[in-house]
């Protein structure tokens, strides 16, 4: 028994990456970033505004957090819907209390279905980013490029129209991509995206239509990842975020400005027994010196202006 000869051939074995999507670069070796106004740490909160359809197809996989029981899975449908009608309003109160200006990454289907909710977000003047069509419209390897192009065009077209914003940020449902996703995003006017989790600072990601900015939004500190995937406690969630904040602030003293990117979901942290933990996190971070709340578009704009000037 043996394998084909190609298992002992290494065509990409060379300096740097085994693909040409971005340059190999160690964070510690890069020029320091200086945020405006002596800020050391930018707190970027991204709120996943999600719609999980009841008639989930699950192609090519069942999205984490989606329906798990036979149709009609009212249990998971209504648990997720809870976020959009109850949890989100607890979030908004907490953001106002701690003067946080997050990004709201919408599934375009949610914006279409819930005009009241979209208006509540628009009124705040916060950034709206695109989170794809809905949680069952996945982007995936092997997907036809025509189908994916249509999916992206539809999501962005609808969300730009309804939000009245340019919508330059993107995070894919379940952060799942095809080999074409970054190209298609750039083709449709996206400037930054947050699917790849390989850095703590933004970097340039090459596409056929110009560079995208890969924006750091930790999956390790995602509420769904910590609480639902890892089954850590709510107390541990708070500890992990506060420890990350302390560490990055300290690193920023010698290595330049840093970003703490937190992805959160109203159906998860918006529950009555968890909202206090989000408040504890925001209270801790916002009480630190040299921390400022920023959104993805602001980080993109600031870094782009720096590069040009």
């Amino acid at each position: 028994m043996s394998l084909d000869r190609r298992f002992l051939e290494y065509p990409q074995r060379k300096y740097g990456m085994d693909h040409d999507r971005y340059e190999w670069s160690m964070l510690s070796e890069r020029p320091k970033v200086s945020w405006p106004n002596e800020v050391k740490l930018g707190l970027w909160i991204n709120v996943g505004m999600q719609f999980f359809p009841l008639n989930q197809r699950g192609e090519p996989f069942k999205v984490p957090g989606g329906m798990t029981m036979p149709y009609p899975d009212l249990r998971h449908f209504s648990l997720r819907d809870y976020g959009n009608r109850v949890g989100i309003y607890r979030f908004l109160k907490a953001f106002d209390k701690y003067n946080i200006k997050p990004t709201f990454a919408f599934n375009s289907r949610l914006a279409e279905r819930n005009p009241y909710l979209l208006d509540a977000i628009k009124e705040r003047g916060d950034e709206i980013a695109c989170h794809g069509l809905h949680m069952d419209a996945l982007h995936y390897g092997g997907q036809s490029i025509e189908q994916e192009r249509e999916q992206i065009a539809q999501a962005l077209g609808s969300l730009r129209d309804l939000s009245g914003q340019d919508v330059i940020g993107w995070i894919s449902p379940a952060r799942s991509e095809s080999e074409n996703t970054p190209d298609l995003l750039a083709e449709h006017g996206i400037k930054y995206f947050s699917d790849w989790v390989n850095d703590d600072m933004p970097y340039s990601f090459k596409t056929k239509h110009g560079d995208l900015m890969a924006m750091p939004l930790s999956n390790e500190l995602d509420d769904q990842f910590i609480l639902m995937s890892n089954l850590h406690s709510e107390e541990s969630y708070v500890e992990q975020i506060c420890d990350a904040c302390d560490f990055l602030l300290k690193e920023a003293e010698t290595q330049g400005g840093r970003i703490l990117g937190l992805n959160i979901h109203p159906w998860m942290l918006g529950q009555p027994h968890r909202i206090g933990k989000l408040e504890a996190v925001l209270d801790y971070i916002s009480s630190q010196d040299s921390v400022c709340s920023v959104n993805g578009a602001q980080i993109y704009q600031f870094l782009t202006d720096q590069t040009i000037s």
Binding site: P53, L54, N55, Y71, P72, L74, F77, N84, R85, V86, Y89, R90, L92, R113, N114, Y116, L117, A120
Partner: peptide, 15 residues
Amino acid sequence: MKEDPQLYDYWPYHN
């Protein structure tokens, strides 16, 4: 199969 069970309407938890 429906994308939404249409059992209840949207009702924001404020005001």
